[in-house]
């Protein structure tokens, strides 16, 4: 298993896709900070745009993460059926589960790397271009001193990440299942987005107009919990729910995906 993971890592780091996507993520972070920097320089007197503000603003972009997991999956798995390379693994006796699991682990590693790059570049650029708030600004905006305002901003980011992580994991597992089971990578990508967007919408409406039981099902979707994260505080009970729902999706999608892939003909 470890050998397959190592091999997948070797493949991904030799793929231009990985470096281009990483560079784009870094550029995107820089771009957002630069936009904030432009706002900052236009303001006069009061200076609300600073690092804690930028870190807090980052949270509002985080729900997109559940859609962006597809980048990592695509990077690791895309065009695998087009290139027909899976047959080289199957013919050497590498089990289907090992093939599946190695992609799962490496996608997780790739996404973790992308997240770290994104947050690190964002933070560094924020620190350089936006700087820390002045003591007066920190007191006026957050009611605490500078150090505490920075800690609080990263604390929010940490809690948000802690809650969103299992939901992202569920999304990633679902996307991997789509990529393994649907031969065309573009179709697999669209299927994932479709399941993520249309299923909750359908369940929500069915709950409203047909039977309330669909509302209960709607509350079990990843998108619902993702949307809930930005509403109000994040108590441990809410974080716990996210873990329960996210991990359930991850286990179910992986079990179904791996089971169906094990019977799939490799061409």
């Amino acid at each position: 298993m470890l050998r397959s993971i190592q091999a997948e890592c070797y493949k991904v780091v030799h793929r231009p896709y990985f470096w281009i996507t990483t560079a784009l993520c870094a550029l995107f972070s820089l771009g957002v900070i630069f936009c904030l920097y432009l706002i900052k320089t236009e303001a006069s007197g009061v200076n609300p745009v600073n690092l804690p503000f930028a870190v807090t603003a980052l949270l509002f972009g985080m729900p997109a993460g559940i859609y962006l997991v597809i980048l990592g999956v695509d990077m690791v798995f895309s065009e695998q059926y087009k290139y027909n390379t899976l047959k080289n693994e199957a013919s050497f006796g590498i089990g289907r589960f090992r093939i599946y699991a190695s992609r799962w682990v490496v996608t997780l590693l790739v996404l973790a790397a992308l997240y770290l790059v994104l947050v690190a570049v964002y933070t560094l650029a924020g620190l350089i271009l936006l700087g820390l708030p002045s003591q007066a600004d920190a007191q006026a905006m957050y009611g605490v001193d500078v150090g505490r305002s920075v800690v609080n901003a990263f604390r929010s980011l940490g809690f948000y990440t802690l809650s969103a992580f299992p939901l992202w994991l569920g999304g990633m597992s679902l996307a991997i299942a789509c990529y393994f089971l649907i031969t065309n990578s573009t179709m697999a990508g669209f299927s994932y987005i479709g399941i993520l967007m249309l299923l909750p919408m359908a369940l929500d409406n069915l709950g409203k107009y047909v039977d309330p039981v669909f509302t209960s099902l709607y509350h079990l979707t990843l998108t619902y919990h993702m949307d809930q994260l930005l509403l109000g505080d994040l108590p441990w009970s809410k974080i716990g729910q996210c873990w329960l729902v996210g991990l359930s999706w991850a286990v179910a999608a992986t079990a179904v995906g791996a089971a169906l892939f094990s019977r799939k003909e490799i061409k």
Partner: peptide, 20 residues
Amino acid sequence: SFYPYLTARQNLEYYRIQRG
């Protein structure tokens, strides 16, 4: 069938690692 973005050596190296 091999990965089109890898060289011959890189493709074999990938399978060498995978096969241990």
